[in-house]
Design a protein around this nucleic acid. Structure first.
Lengths: 242, 242
DNA sequence: CAGTGGTCTAGACCACCCG
DNA sequence: GGGTGGTCTAGACCACTGA
């Protein structure tokens, strides 16, 4: 195994390595992976570490396990865009659509709604970077997105954002922030005049309004995002376990 | 610890025991739980088993962990109605609202849409039970639901359903079926004439359309459900981990 | 029957937090 | 420095599967 990163954890490296081998068809769809004991010999680690790596792959839907039989590569990996915190870019790439963005506005402001101030734990005149973007898939408008980012955690973020930037890449690679989870809510609303104009749809069209707060590893809030998805073009999907 | 069930696993028993102690405020909201080492002594098991139990509680949103500090009982357990496969009834009870249903229709039919036939793996003239219901919370209409249930798995289901039945209870307690997971999709649509009439809302109101297929432990499909939620009254929520 | 994944143990070292 | 949770090891026994 070629392991580029030594900073991480063993199970992370193994997870990535197996994922790569699934992606490049070293492990083909439907194929049985080597048993856990064999993998632990291959990677020179304990079986518990292998199981941790496999459990992530299972949670994310890349493999499934059958007791007494083995671990298998899933044939049709469905993308559940609600099960994991993923960027729009990552979602589109997974579903083999071409993502792009149009940057409409960046501003640094302390004019923030009260509830957003609370969830972002802003004091007094603390400012946010507000980023407004249109999100496209295969050149078709999918959504209009308004993000409020805590300015203290991402100073001068405007320098790193252009039309097709992935904000996730900026958080993780520029600022070294570790995103942990997001709390999402979804509801159906009608497009008002402003939204319908921006999304280039008829007024009173159905729109999926997503509201999401994203937190770091230390449970500190990083940003809040509102996103209006065109009802006919976008659906959220999830697998719920009992 | 009083352990009623010996059949299960140690971590399951510990999970349940801690959950009970959270419910009856033996562990109060915001309080720190005993450390993992201490818990492993308390329950006479290894620390790994304690961690397994705690990880379930964490996933389900009952506790959170802080490295270097401890494991704490969550003050406001949010209910993420998309993270786990729960019945409408269970969701409402968790959020302290009174659920009720109005049974509109039950029929046994082989008139099933092609895609539903496929997901339910119906052959030729295999029939489904189709159940149409209105779902209420605190006496207010929340949703209109159309369920197609495989008739071979639930013979004579009409005998066990009335206005306020929980279908989940029927599946699990009457037929002994073990539900494993559901695949959900959500989109925003407009209420057409039929839907607006049934839900008693204006035509072209925003509606959240949920489409869900539920599977058993052996990955066999059990039922398909379409549900129209009134946009202003219902929001779906989830916690997504990265 | 041999091989698989599921559970469990009794250790160990680490990064992190607080007093 | 002492306690916390996060990672990891090298074993063990079990339940389940298929040949």
């Amino acid at each position: 195994m070629s392991m580029a990163s030594n900073i991480g954890y063993i199970y992370q490296d193994i997870y990535r390595d197996i994922l790569n081998k699934i992606s490049d068809s070293t492990f083909e769809a439907g194929e049985r992976l080597p048993g856990e004991l064999e993998l632990s010999k291959l990677y020179s680690c304990s079986r518990a570490t292998i199981r941790k790596a496999l459990s992530i792959l299972e949670r994310e839907g890349y493999v499934y396990k059958k007791r007494g039989q083995g671990t298998f590569v899933k044939v049709n990996k469905l993308d559940y865009n609600l099960n994991y915190l993923e960027s729009f870019t990552e979602q589109m790439l997974k579903s083999k659509r071409k993502p792009s963005s149009e940057l409409l506005m960046i501003e640094k402001t302390d004019d923030v709604a009260v509830d957003v101030k609370q969830t972002l734990k802003l004091n007094g005149n603390d400012k946010v970077y507000r980023v407004k973007r249109l999100r496209y898939a295969d050149e078709k408008i999918m959504a209009y997105e308004i993000t409020n980012i805590r300015s203290d955690l991402c100073p001068d973020i405007q320098k790193y954002i252009d039309d097709n930037s992935s904000l996730y890449d900026v958080y993780e690679k520029v600022y070294g922030l570790k995103l942990k989870y997001g709390d999402v809510s979804l509801e159906a609303v009608l497009a008002d005049e402003e939204i319908s104009e921006i999304l280039d749809i008829k007024i009173n069209s159905p729109v999926l309004l997503m509201n999401c707060n994203v937190y770091l590893e230390n449970d500190e809030p990083l940003y809040h995002v509102l996103c209006y998805y065109i009802g006919e073009r976008y659906a959220f999907t999830a697998r719920q376990y009992r």
